[in-house]
Simulated assay, not measured.
Amino acid sequence: MDNDVAPSAASAPASGVAGRTILLAGGTSAAGIASAVALTRAGARVIVAGRDPEKLATVVAEAPGTLTIAADLTDEDAIADLARTVHDERGAVDGVLHLVGGWRGGGGLAGQSDSDYRFLERSLTALRHVSRAFDADLRESSAGRLAIVSSTAVARPLAGGANYAAIKAASEAWTRAVGQGFAKGARDGSRELNAAAVIFRTKSLEGLEGALADAFIALWSDDAEDWNDVIVELGDGG
């Protein structure tokens, strides 16, 4: 499927996610809380993983019933522990929304420091660890979904945001590779494609937290083949 064309998410019903087990990786931000609330209301079983226990407590206060797990998502051993805990507490997951992010930039090309790059690289590292740890779950689910939040900077990179755009571009490439793995596994097994990897692109998530939550929930309203390797634009793209 053309990776720039997405099914309509605006009018899709939310019932398809009911009963699904969803992991929000790095889900302590405003977008994570909005997603946890929306998913819980839609009948999903939500797990939020993040570093900060205080922020995790805030998630539970806003979305009662959410299972929170403190974990360093950039640490491979910690991710293995996270996967064991998730499986012990909730079983296999059906969906992962990757929300580990952050911004550092400015100063033109000369201002793109290595320390800023290493800070931004944490998002890609976490994505690699989490997607590998839960790959089998998503493949074996009757409707597995992996989604990341990327940036319009991938298509329109600026010198002052070169580090940021490079990390987002790499994250998109990784996610598309995950989707290719889903498709190949289905073909090799002579079975229907049940898992999809999706990229949400936006200029900024500020003010679009609810739109992201709705768009993620809508991924269960269509077949996996309609969503796999698809880029969904959130907002006007600015």
Results as ranks from 00 to 15, higher is better:
Asn3Ala: 11
Asp4Gly: 15
Val5Cys: 07
Ala9Arg: 14
Ala9Glu: 05
Ala10Trp: 13
Ala12Asn: 02
Pro13Gln: 11
Gly19Cys: 13
Gly19Trp: 07
Ile22Asn: 01
Ile22Glu: 00
Gly26Lys: 03
Gly27Ala: 11
Ser29His: 09
Ala30Asn: 05
Ala30Gln: 12
Ala38His: 08
Leu39Pro: 11
Thr40Tyr: 07
Arg41Asn: 11
Ala42Phe: 09
Val46Asn: 09
Ile47Val: 15
Ile47Lys: 06
Gly50Val: 10
Arg51Ser: 12
Pro53Asn: 05
Glu54Tyr: 09
Lys55Gly: 08
Leu56Ile: 00
Val59Arg: 02
Glu62Phe: 07
Thr66Glu: 04
Leu67Asp: 01
Leu67Phe: 03
Thr68Ser: 02
Ile69Ala: 02
Asp72Glu: 11
Thr74Asp: 07
Asp75Ala: 10
Ile79Pro: 04
Ala80Tyr: 00
Asp81Pro: 07
Leu82Gln: 05
Leu82Ile: 05
Leu82Gly: 00
Arg84Asn: 02
Thr85Gln: 10
Val86Trp: 05
Asp88Phe: 12
Glu89Ile: 00
Ala92Ile: 06
Ala92His: 08
Ala92Trp: 04
Asp94Val: 08
Val96Asn: 02
Leu97Trp: 01
His98Thr: 08
His98Gly: 10
Trp103Leu: 15
Gly107Leu: 05
Gly111Lys: 06
Gln112Trp: 04
Gln112Pro: 00
Phe119Tyr: 13
Leu120Ile: 03
Leu120His: 03
Arg122Ile: 01
Thr125His: 01
Ala126Asp: 04
Arg128Gly: 02
Arg128Pro: 02
Arg128Phe: 06
His129Ala: 13
Val130Asn: 07
Ser131Gly: 07
Arg132Val: 14
Leu138His: 00
Ala143Arg: 15
Arg145Glu: 00
Leu146Val: 13
Ala147Pro: 09
Ala153Gly: 09
Ala153Cys: 12
Ala162Glu: 09
Tyr164Met: 03
Ala166Leu: 08
Ala169Leu: 08
Ala170Gly: 12
Glu172Trp: 06
Glu172Thr: 10
Trp174Leu: 15
Val178His: 05
Gln180Ala: 12
Gln180Phe: 10
Ala183Lys: 06
Ala183Glu: 07
Arg187Ala: 13
Arg187His: 08
Ser190Cys: 04
Arg191Lys: 14
Arg191Cys: 13
Ala197Asn: 03
Val198Arg: 00
Lys203Val: 11
Lys203Asp: 14
Ser204Gln: 13
Gly207Asn: 12
Glu209Asn: 02
Ala211Asn: 09
Asp214Ser: 15
Ala218Pro: 12
Ala224Pro: 11
Glu225Ile: 14
Trp227Gln: 04
Asn228Lys: 01
Val230Tyr: 03
Gly235Pro: 14
Asp236His: 11
Asp236Lys: 13
Asp236Gln: 12
Gly237Pro: 08
Gly238Lys: 11
